[in-house]
């Protein structure tokens, strides 16, 4: 019998207390994310798709706007897939989630969290949940605003009709779902990367290349990319070009559950690392 076992009594979980503790940590993290310079950078990034859609929807070229000439759904899908999903969500999540723990390690303030009466796994889950909430709110707002701008050529009544009676509402929900799942999937991945690597450039660069060139990968390897599942959920299919290895997208349920399971596994790995982690800032 160990010293501790001689006298320690197993503690029962007080769920109400735990909920208050997690609430406190989520609020602390949200304040750190939304009331600092980080939020300004994310806000600017999330405004980029809105600006692009505004440009292509309001500036006429040869008498027609781009939205009118190529069709608003195709144009929006292209912007969403290439700019938003292909860059802003990826790098926005990298910026926030890589620094979720690494930022506090570099700031030498992580020990304050680890000296609170919270299991380290709970700390990981609560910080991650707060970051997903913060990033998702910003990026989903960006999705809604940018999507609404595709109705510039048809006006308010046309927008209401498409959103309620046409496919517009379903498409918007799909884009919001993809945005949320991207935050969840990339968020978990970059949280883990932040725990393992001190510098994000090499791992993030490798991941970015992998994600962006996924269409060239053989079918088996495609399944190892986050974007493969996200693209399967997009409402308007676009061609990946003549060199793409074409495979049937996974069913939506597989994409959603697969990404959630992926995030859970990656977070579990992160929790395992932080559980064994020692605070020795001099090494960082």
């Amino acid at each position: 019998m160990t010293v501790a076992q001689e006298t320690a009594t197993p503690s029962r979980i007080d769920w109400t207390l735990l909920a208050r503790q997690v609430g406190g940590l989520v609020r602390l993290e949200l304040r750190r994310l939304l009331l600092t310079r980080r939020a300004v950078i994310l806000g600017v990034a999330s405004a980029i798709p809105v600006g692009i859609v505004l440009l292509v929807g309001s500036i006429p070229i040869g008498g027609q706007t781009v939205l009118e000439r190529f069709g608003n759904r195709i144009v929006y899908e292209t912007i969403f897939e290439t700019v938003f999903l292909g860059a802003i969500l990826f790098f926005g999540c990298l910026y926030v989630f890589f620094n979720l723990f690494r930022g506090e390690i570099l700031e030498r303030s992580l020990h304050y969290l680890l000296l609170t009466p919270l299991r380290r796994e709970v700390v990981v889950a609560a910080k991650y949940a707060a970051a997903v909430a913060a990033v998702a709110v910003l990026f989903m707002a960006s999705t809604v605003f940018s999507y609404m701008l595709i109705y510039l050529p048809v006006g308010f009544s046309g927008a209401v009709e498409d959103l309620t009676a046409g496919p517009g509402g379903r498409h918007l929900v799909a884009y919001l779902g993809v945005t949320l799942l991207a935050c969840i999937g990339y968020g978990s991945l970059f949280t883990l990367v932040g725990m393992v690597f001190r510098n994000p450039i090499i791992p993030a660069g490798a991941l970015y290349v992998w994600e962006m060139l996924h269409f060239l990968l053989p079918p088996a390897l495609k399944k190892l990319s986050v974007i493969h599942y996200l693209k399967g959920l997009l409402p308007v299919p676009l061609s990946d070009g003549p060199f793409a290895v074409v495979v049937e997208p996974p069913p939506p349920a597989v994409s959603v559950l697969g990404l959630l399971a992926f995030a859970a596994v990656v977070l579990a790995a992160t929790a395992l690392i932080i559980r064994r982690m020692e605070i020795r800032y001099t090494e960082d």
């Binding site: 010293v3 001689e6 503690s11 700031e107 303030s109 304050y112 000296l115 009466p117 709970v122």
Partner: peptide, 30 residues
């Protein structure tokens, strides 16, 4: 092995209700 008031130091949820640590690190949340 180490125990504080009979609690193992690997159980933060119990330990840090009774334990306060002022570290050497002169750093704070930004």
């Amino acid at each position: 092995e180490i125990s504080v008031l009979g609690l193992p130091v690997t159980r933060p949820q119990d330990l840090f209700r009774r334990f306060g640590y002022c570290t050497q690190y002169d750093s704070f949340p930004r």
